[in-house]
Design a protein around this nucleic acid. Structure first.
Lengths: 159, 159
DNA sequence: GGAATTTACTGGCATATGCCACTATATATG
DNA sequence: CATATATAGTGGCATATGCCAGTAAATTCC
């Protein structure tokens, strides 16, 4: 119905940045997931594998911070990856409280394989959205995700 | 450590739009949630209540489309709201397959109450990010969330 | 009009995320 | 050094989301 069309045009997401971002993340989750296809892994898992690969062997804590993720959420999210043998945890030499995360051999391979597929999705995104704008948006989102932004957002409380 | 700082600067989210959006949605989820405080409701639930309020009495299907959410996911997400008496489902007169969603009296009140708190968070966001840029970003995200964008993204498959 | 197909939901299963309480370890303090 | 406090993770519980396999009602096609 025409009514539904209107509904998709005018919604809370035009006024609420939080809703807007969540909604977009559902859409992109969908689109990228499709493109990644049958590998059995989710977009989030690819992000995680990739970030671990980029980070060397980060501690859970620092990985969580980089991902802007709750530490316990990270722990939960890693479980299926550990269970499937893509990722492993090992104790830190210096600090016995800390654990470090690393990719296994299998994990490294899988990450490379996924990267190929992911690149296809990312190329589609860049093409549909514009490469320049795409990069700019990622920078903008990275800014919004930064602790500096969180601080700016919260420091406002006193005003 | 200084190393962690670097990790937060250079990550997969600078290259993957999907990761970037998800990461930002975690950050904003956090910030808005804080601002909404003790009402017992989540940001997502506020979005949902607000969109229902804006939509009159949408069918589950059309609400799901507007939210860019899987129909079954919407169903699941509504359950706690129904259980807590904020939302109710009723059959559609014309199409007996369809159900319509509406706010209860309690739901309407709660939504209004939440809006006050939400506005504070939104104002903080606009202040920290810039009101103009904020609006522009929401429009951009709405575009990314549109079926037209999904189509553009996917039509690329043939090229 | 009745069978085939499509549409709108529901329920089960799995991952994604976050909060809180609790444990172990490291650090700071008197 | 012993205690108080801060830090890194874990486990339980709750919501967020999506996929898939039904079920029921509406539509399409002989």
């Amino acid at each position: 119905m025409v009514n539904d069309e209107k509904m998709r045009e005018d919604g809370i997401w035009l006024y609420c940045s939080n809703s807007a971002v969540r909604r977009a993340s559902r859409q992109l989750g969908q689109l990228y997931e499709d493109a990644m296809g049958d590998t059995g892994l989710k977009g989030t898992q690819f992000s995680l594998l990739s970030q671990i690969a980029r980070s060397g062997e980060p501690t859970l804590k620092s990985l969580a911070e980089a991902m802007v993720m709750d530490l316990s959420a990270l722990g939960h999210t890693l479980k299926p990856l550990i269970r499937d043998g893509l990722v492993e945890l090992m104790p830190d030499d210096k600090d016995r409280r800390a654990k470090r995360v690393g990719l296994t051999e299998t994990g490294i391979e899988k990450q490379k394989d996924l990267t190929t597929r992911w690149q296809i999705a990312q190329d589609r995104f860049d093409k549909a959205f514009g490469k320049e704008k795409s990069e700019e948006m990622r920078r903008t989102l990275a800014f919004i995700s930064s602790p500096e932004f969180a601080e700016a957002f919260n420091s406002d409380k006193k005003d």
